[in-house]
Design a protein around this nucleic acid. Structure first.
Lengths: 202, 202
DNA sequence: CGACGCCCATGACAGACGTCACGCGCCCGC
DNA sequence: GCGGGCGCGTGACGTCTGTCATGGGCGTCG
C-alpha cells in the first residue's frame, strides 16, 4: 500500500523537486501539489492524501492556518510541516494546531522520506535540534496585540501607518511596541519585529 | 555524453530534491553538492562540472561573488543562477558577472532540465517575465555608499550603530539614507532598505 | 470581592530621525 | 580648467519614536 502525498510549497521548483525526490520511493506517490495555502483544503478533498507536506510560509494562508482549517473540517490527513530554518516558535504553534511532524529545510534530503513514513505510521516527528532550541528559547512572551503591532512594524512603516492598519491610536501602538522592545531586549521596533519573527513569535 | 552538474543551495532539502529531479534525466548527472558559497570553487576544481546551478542567497559567499571568483580563476564552467522570486536587479549583476542563465524558483520544475541543457549548449537562458520586469524597473539608481548604508539598515538598527559598522559619522549615514529614501519614494530607512532589497539593488 | 493582566488611550519629555543647506576634497569628462 | 557627481562631514530644524506615568474598562483567578 503506497502512501498518498500532498505537497504544498509556494516555490514551484522546490515543489516539483520534492515531488521527484519522494516519487522515487517505492512506497510513496505524490497525488497533489499546490502552491498556495488556500488551495490545500480543496486539494485534500479531491485527492484524499494520507500525508500532507506543508510549507509554513505560503501566500493565501500560512501552514498553521491550513492546519487549523483541516482540523476544523475533520480531515483525517496527517500533516508534516516543512519550514525554512530555526523559527522554534513555529514548532509549538504547529504542534498545538495539530501537526504530526516538523522538519526544517536544512535536514538532509535522505531523511525526508523516513520522516514521512513515521508520520504516516502515527509517530510524531520533530527535528531534535529544533526541539531543544524551542525548549531553550522558552515560550512566546508577547501578547496578541504586541504580535499584531510587530507584524505591522516588520516593513518599517511609520507608527501612524501601523496605527491606521490596526485601527488604533498611535499612542497605543507606541506603547505596545515599546513593551515588545523591552521584552525582546532590542532598541527599535524593527529590531524587535525581526527578533520576534526569527523565533516564530509572530 | 552526460552533463556534469554542481548544485549550490544552502537548504539541504532543496538541494537534495533538485539533485533527485535532475538525476532523473538521462543526460545529466549531479557530481557535486555544496551548501555554502565559499565551498563552490573547491568543489568545481575537484568535480569539474559542466554546469553549475547557483543559488544567489547563500551563506559564505553569495552567488554573484561566486561567479566573479570562478571567472577570476578562469574556470570553464557555465553557471545557471537560481533565485527566489523577482529581484530583477540581480539579473543584471549576475549577467555582468558572467552568468549564462537565470531562472527563478517559481518556474515549473519540468523546465529546469531544459534550461540546464540550453546553458550547457552555450545558449543564454533568462526567465522572460523577469527580463521584462528588469527592463521596466530600470537601472539601480543608488550609489555604492547608499547601498552599504541600506544593507546595514535592513535589520532596523539605530543610525548610530549603522555609522559604527560603516566607520562613518552618524550625520553622513543620515544623509545617505535620506537620499536613498528620496530615490525609493519611501518614508523611513527600513522601508527604503526593503524596497531596494526587493529589487535586488543591494 | 480584590488583585492581576491585558486592552486602549492620553500627555509629557528626551532623544532619535529625516530634511535641508552648506562646506571641503577628490576624480572624471568635457 | 572647470563643472558636476560622489564621498564625507557639520549644523540646524521640525517631526517621529521610545519611555514613562497614569487612567478606565474588562475578564479571570484565587
Amino acid at each position: 500500500m503506497v502512501i498518498r502525498l500532498l505537497l504544498a510549497d509556494d516555490q514551484a521548483l522546490v515543489r516539483g523537486a520534492l515531488a521527484a525526490l519522494l516519487d522515487l520511493e517505492r512506497d510513496m506517490q505524490v497525488v497533489a501539489q499546490v502552491g498556495r495555502g488556500d488551495e490545500v483544503l480543496q486539494a485534500v478533498r479531491t485527492a484524499a492524501p494520507d500525508v500532507c507536506l506543508l510549507d509554513i510560509e505560503m501566500p493565501g494562508n500560512d501552514g498553521i492556518g491550513v492546519l487549523e482549517q483541516l482540523r476544523a473540517e475533520g480531515m483525517p490527513t496527517r500533516c508534516l510541516m516543512v519550514t525554512t530554518f530555526g523559527r522554534p516558535g513555529y514548532l509549538r504553534r504547529a504542534m498545538d494546531a495539530g501537526a504530526r511532524g516538523f522538519v526544517v529545510k536544512d535536514t538532509p534530503a535522505s531523511e525526508l522520506a523516513e520522516a514521512v513514513r513515521r508520520v504516516h505510521a502515527g509517530v510524531r516527528v520533530v527535528d531534535p535540534a529544533l526541539a531543544t532550541e524551542s525548549l531553550l528559547g522558552g515560550p512566546n512572551p508577547l501578547t496578541d496585540r504586541e504580535r499584531e503591532a510587530l507584524r505591522a512594524a516588520l516593513d518599517g512603516s511609520p507608527i501612524q501607518v501601523i496605527a491606521g492598519r490596526l485601527f488604533l491610536s498611535p499612542g497605543t501602538v507606541r506603547n505596545y511596541l515599546s513593551s515588545a522592545i523591552g521584552k525582546t531586549g532590542t532598541t527599535t521596533r524593527v529590531e524587535a519585529a525581526k527578533f520576534a519573527e526569527d523565533r516564530g513569535w509572530l
